[in-house]
Design a binder for these strands. Structure first.
Lengths: 261, 261
DNA sequence: CGCGCTGTTGAAACTTGTCAAAGTTTGTGG
DNA sequence: CCACAAACTTTGACAAGTTTCAACAGCGCG
């Protein structure tokens, strides 16, 4: 069965970056020996500089699946680096509707929405048991006044967030269902690859409804699109488990410019 | 006729922040005497600090209507502050489709999309004759290592951009036509107000097609929505001239949560 | 083992897009 | 200064795509 194999190659591995039997070691984990340092904030720092960054990070918190790391309206004080796990961010409209604005995985930063008003403007919820590093923002600003590399990299991270958001806008503004789903799968595949996991097989951490909310679609529409892709032998879907069979086929969908000119 | 009056109260005034007879003075304009300093980058700086920021800005360029300030793919080197005028940013998909990602007015910053890859990822096009200050980014980084207030404010500006983008995502992802148009008009109204113009009367700088692209709609849909709002006595539309008659009515539209749950 | 949550599928309804035509404004060159 | 062309806007009729509503299936948890 393909789903068993997949759990080994990507799904389970993703969940176990910090396995139980190493929990003591985890407490002592520093940026300098974190296996995400090439993805995360320390990128490009010297050992010495990394040590100084380490000093900022006094707290490494576990967040259980379903719990929120922060909620809209709460005072902002920290940037959070995901050590392991998977998050979603969403914003609620006054009337109760809500939209998922992003899915974040290990090595990515959360909380930058709070800088401008000193209050968080969205909710960050763990989609699986996760672990995050708390980075006090004022101290990060202080350190990035001292370390140019850190300053520049942080600016790049914020800029990347802006560019990512632009990508999502074009998706929401002018792509049809199949393009949205293809873009979503390709994006996940690429990010899993960057973390050393299989580009072709992975487990979704989110429900169809959350995918739909992220892509501006109803859950039924997401489900139908998955089924159609399966019929067309582009992917294999088994509930949350995805196996991409034809990655070029998915890319082709993105480049046939027939919809919503 | 309402449109004549409006041209006086807001439209024409907007266009003339730097009228011709003052063009020599404009060359010498510094942050310290710029009437946008409370909206723009210098916010919160002391006179002394503002002078140091001034030194960075060697170039103030005029951009004619229709010309682009920068284009996707061009190397990134500057952040741009709009002194006067009106811009749009848009991204092009490979297949020719394009989407407007934002409209920017005086006092706002452009170019932050370029930080992460050292290349711009969108086009910035003037929708009317405009004037921009060129801020060399590496020097801005250097100065913000020295001036904490400047550093923090720049982070706030980038963060605000992220939050703004989230707002646009919720608009594109779950609002119906009327909500999108109402949100668009209210946002413009609020930004004109912040700049000392009428909240109720202004001239659109962009075409129906550009509005549609921004809001994820076709130009015909935008036109129809304007007509419907006019029938309902919420606004008066005369081509590019908008007169908001019932601002609360527009706000009410935003809060009736009937569509796309 | 059954209940609830999540996911799948079908048919109908509705919103928005597409196509087409005509009206209006703006800009340009004679 | 006028005339004409181009660009933009409005409106209608129809088509297409997505949502809505509903029923049912599958998985996982207590």
């Amino acid at each position: 069965m393909p789903s068993d194999k997949a759990l080994k190659t990507s799904g389970a591995a993703n969940n176990k970056l910090a396995p139980k039997e190493l929990s003591l070691a985890v407490i002592k984990t520093a940026c300098s020996n974190c296996n995400l340092r090439e993805l995360c904030l320390p990128l490009g720092l010297t050992d010495d500089e990394m040590e100084r960054l380490d000093e900022l990070i006094s707290v490494r918190r576990r967040v259980k699946r379903g719990d929120s790391l922060y909620r809209a309206g709460q005072p902002f004080g920290y940037i959070y680096a995901i050590r392991s796990g998977f998050f979603k961010t969403d914003v609620l409209l006054e009337d109760g509707r809500d939209q998922v604005t992003g899915f974040q995985m290990a090595g990515e930063l959360l909380g930058m929405d709070g800088i401008c008003t000193e209050c968080h403007t969205c909710n960050a919820v763990a989609l699986e048991d996760s672990e995050v590093c708390h980075i006090p923002f004022s101290r990060l600003e202080k350190l990035s006044r001292e370390i140019q590399t850190l300053q520049h990299h942080f600016h790049q991270v914020m800029s990347r967030e802006i560019v990512r958001d632009h990508g999502l806008m074009t998706l929401l503004g002018m792509m049809c269902v199949e393009e949205r789903i293809a873009a979503f799968l390709l994006n996940l595949s690429q990010r899993f690859t960057a973390r050393g996991f299989s580009p072709a097989e992975f487990n979704l951490r989110m429900t169809r409804e959350e995918i739909g909310s992220y892509l501006g679609l109803k859950l039924e529409t997401v489900s139908r699109a998955f089924s159609r892709f399966q019929e067309e032998k582009l992917i294999n879907v088994q509930q949350k488990h995805i196996h991409i069979l034809d990655i070029d086929g998915l890319k082709r969908i993105m480049s046939r410019h027939n919809q919503r000119a």
